[in-house]
Design a protein around this nucleic acid. Structure first.
Length: 212
DNA sequence: AACTCGGGGCA
DNA sequence: TGCCCAGAGTT
């Protein structure tokens, strides 16, 4: 029973990997702090918009010190189109200062420590742990994951904490990071919140919610 | 549990 | 032009 559920999820992952690959992160970054900043920016914002913003942002600010010493109004201006820019600018600067003061400039690599940074909750921490360090402690659950795992009947709740626990039981650990990436990609391109593209969906043979 | 924080995309 | 989308923090 439990074994069948695992095989079913792995089958879903394999199908999505054929279309969307193994990149394991939708955000562009070249250092752990850049990924942290990009992931803080991705709250309530699409990854495409974040990548547009970080293109210039990462040219202006080169390292953790640059963010820690940033003028908040200037930083706000760079990230404006990511939304909630006042909160996010404050959070990025505060997190940079904490990384320097508490961790000697290195982004911490545990869930417990990451959650203490500002602008970082479980979703962001899971993305950073998985994509920057390959040290997943959980599964990044965003609205795409909630919507799509419920459609697939892998989960049956709206509570992200409950969903993450359920998924951690059924998904083998080595797939944890890529699972979120693949579901988010599917959600962005095909299985949208409004008007899901059942006809062109690579999962339409498997998905209980797909009309045949 | 409810509220706040902004901007972009689409009808 | 108004509605919907996408997380974290505070009260």
């Amino acid at each position: 029973m439990e074994k069948n559920k695992k095989e079913h999820v792995v089958r879903i992952i394999k199908i999505l990997e054929k279309d969307y690959g193994h990149v394991e992160c939708a955000l562009n970054f070249s250092s752990p702090f850049e990924l942290l900043a990009a992931t803080i920016l991705s709250a309530q914002c699409t990854d495409e918009r974040v990548n547009k913003v970080t293109k210039d942002l990462f040219k202006r600010y080169k390292n953790v010190e640059d963010y820690a010493n940033a003028d908040i109004l200037e930083l706000e201006n760079y990230i404006k189109s990511a939304g909630f820019f006042r909160n996010k600018a404050k959070n990025i600067i505060k997190s940079a200062q904490m990384v320097i003061n508490k961790y000697n400039g290195d982004v911490p690599q545990t869930m417990k420590e990451l959650l203490e940074l500002s602008g970082v909750a479980r979703k962001t921490a899971n993305v950073v742990l998985g994509s920057a360090f390959g040290k997943s402690e959980g599964i990044a659950v965003d609205t795409h994951v909630i919507r799509i795992t419920n459609l697939l009947k892998l989960t049956e709740y709206d509570d992200p904490v409950k969903i993450e626990k359920d998924l951690m039981k059924t998904i083998p650990k080595k797939y944890w990071m890529n699972f979120s990436f693949l579901i988010q990609t599917l959600g962005r391109i095909i299985c949208k919140a409004r008007n899901p593209g059942h006809i062109v969906c690579p999962l339409n043979e498997i998905c209980p919610s797909s009309q045949k």
